[in-house]
Design a protein around this nucleic acid. Structure first.
Lengths: 107, 107
DNA sequence: TATGGATATAACAATATAGTTATACTATAA
DNA sequence: TTATAGTATAACTATATTGTTATATCCATA
């Protein structure tokens, strides 16, 4: 995954509430109203956290009648993990600076 | 890794600048002055990003004369990846709500 | 010891984030 | 069609984040 996209996903995951949501969704799909008693925040706050995860592509939503169920995008979560362990090769950054004579040589 | 700590690490990694720093440090140790021409931000900004990574335990610093070199804590980075793929079991959260009669049953 | 280079910290500004309450929207059911 | 439950959005506030410039600190060396 590209660095910018990966950073976006990591930022979405980098919040205790959202990470706990992900952990719960790993267990099973959940509807918004199930999250409300779990977290000590208002329903709109829950909704916004879920939207943040959705925008990052980490969850999908699925309306069933008046309820909206959220599901974990396991593939995406796995991609983030893999992205972390296989960060893109950025050695060319130093090479390019070297070519422009901008690379600092310490000591 | 505990959820709160994991979220802290993910938040530290969830910034394009810091993630690119991590990618560069995966290649080799770098001193602060080497990062300056890479990113379009001031030296104090570089310094603060590195401190954020250090506080999260993702890098270590090592002074050599007037230079400060930063090294990737590969073990920690790996732990974060593993933490993501093996999120703690939180099924007890629903169980406890169930016991208190607070669990919502949709549909 | 004085000077200068490398890095960190302080003080501040602009923007992003995460929460709130109020309200709008959507679907079910009376 | 009206009322109600579940969810999302709007408007706002407080705090966190990320950058800046100015300055302090640390170390090598003239």
């Amino acid at each position: 995954m590209e660095l910018k996209k990966l950073a976006d996903c990591l930022k979405a995951l980098g919040d205790p509430t959202r990470l706990e949501m992900i952990a719960l969704l790993k267990h099973r799909d959940c509807c918004v109203c199930e999250f409300i008693p779990v977290f000590n925040i208002s329903q709109p706050a829950i909704s916004k956290h879920l939207n943040r995860l959705k925008v990052a592509g980490l969850v999908t939503e699925n309306r069933k009648g008046q309820w909206v169920f959220y599901s974990l995008n396991r593939k995406k979560l796995e991609e983030v993990g893999l992205g972390l362990s296989h960060l893109p090769d950025v050695t060319n950054i130093f090479d390019e600076l070297e070519a422009k004579g901008l690379l600092v040589h310490c000591e």
